[in-house]
């Protein structure tokens, strides 16, 4: 056995590299074993579209947006993609709750050069990575089904990145306030109506005017608008607002998370 400790040599610590990447690396190592989840990520959107959206569309007919009539699946498909980018990021971020309250993984990280701020950044990055994997799978299916009608569609994956980042930041910030599993029910009470009302299944025009602005304040609405515009090719300057809204949500969320995790871990 060689000497296991050399008490004069210093460990090199490359400060230039973002330490958050190391957390991404650790999570990827764990995730390798759960490839099943990723595989189901490919099938689920197919499931939803064939078992739900297409039959429903058959029943509903088309959706009129402005002066254009869209096939129902072409209306809902991009929205479901946005919702899946959101869910992929947000629910992965909520896994951090377990690690923060019950697991010891972060305690171990903090006895290395990794800081609480790196944890917030790293977990956000990871949530975005996972969300992007789902989005890419979903996008493939939309392409195969011919539901992407414009060359703007090339920007859909980068747009999913923005959505994922926005909800990852918000998600990690949210879990730092959660005390127990019952609090997840409250999260559900926010996420479910957002999913159903943010023009996923029906256009903004069904709402009375007073409610319209309320819906337009929902972050998922901006995600859906963004993807829907890119998929249909009906792109306008409003899409920059969408990107700004989501990007800002991600940055603010990550900042809050960073500060809160600092307080939770360093006592």
């Amino acid at each position: 056995m060689s000497e296991v400790a050399a008490h004069t040599r210093l460990t090199p610590w490359p400060r230039s590299r973002p330490a958050g990447l190391l957390i991404v690396e650790r999570n990827a190592m764990v995730y390798r074993r759960s490839w099943m989840i990723l595989l189901s990520g490919f099938f689920e959107p197919l499931f939803y579209l064939t078992f739900f959206v297409y039959p429903l569309g058959d029943f509903i007919g088309g959706v009129t947006l402005g002066d254009e009539t869209l096939e129902y699946a072409a209306f809902v498909g991009p929205a479901l993609l946005a919702a899946s980018a959101m869910n992929g990021a947000f629910y992965d971020a909520t896994n951090v709750f377990w690690k923060l309250r019950y697991g010891k993984v972060y305690d171990a990280m903090l006895s290395t050069p990794i800081s609480p701020g790196d944890v917030a950044v790293g977990e956000t990055m990871w949530a975005v990575v996972r969300s992007l994997l789902y989005s890419a799978a979903f996008l493939n299916i939309l392409l195969v089904l011919g539901l992407i009608e414009s060359w703007w569609g090339l920007l859909i994956l980068p747009a999913c990145f923005v959505i994922g980042f926005g909800f990852a930041g918000a998600g990690i910030a949210a879990v730092t306030w959660m005390r127990n599993w019952q609090d997840f029910d409250l999260v559900q009470l926010v996420m479910l109506p957002m999913f159903l009302f943010a023009t996923t299944f029906f256009p903004l025009s069904v709402y009375p005017e007073a409610i319209e602005w309320l819906v337009q304040a929902l972050p998922l609405y901006h995600g859906i608008e963004l993807i829907r515009a890119l998929a249909t090719g009906d792109v306008s300057a409003f899409q920059l607002v969408n990107v700004a809204y989501l990007g800002l949500m991600g940055i603010v969320g990550m900042k809050i998370a960073s500060r809160r995790i600092d307080g939770l871990l360093l006592k």
Binding site: I60, V63, L196, F197, F201, F202, V206, Y207
Partner: peptide, 9 residues
């Protein structure tokens, strides 16, 4: 969501 929202369609 379904009764009123989707119902409109």
């Amino acid at each position: 969501a379904f009764g009123f929202g989707l119902g409109t369609l």
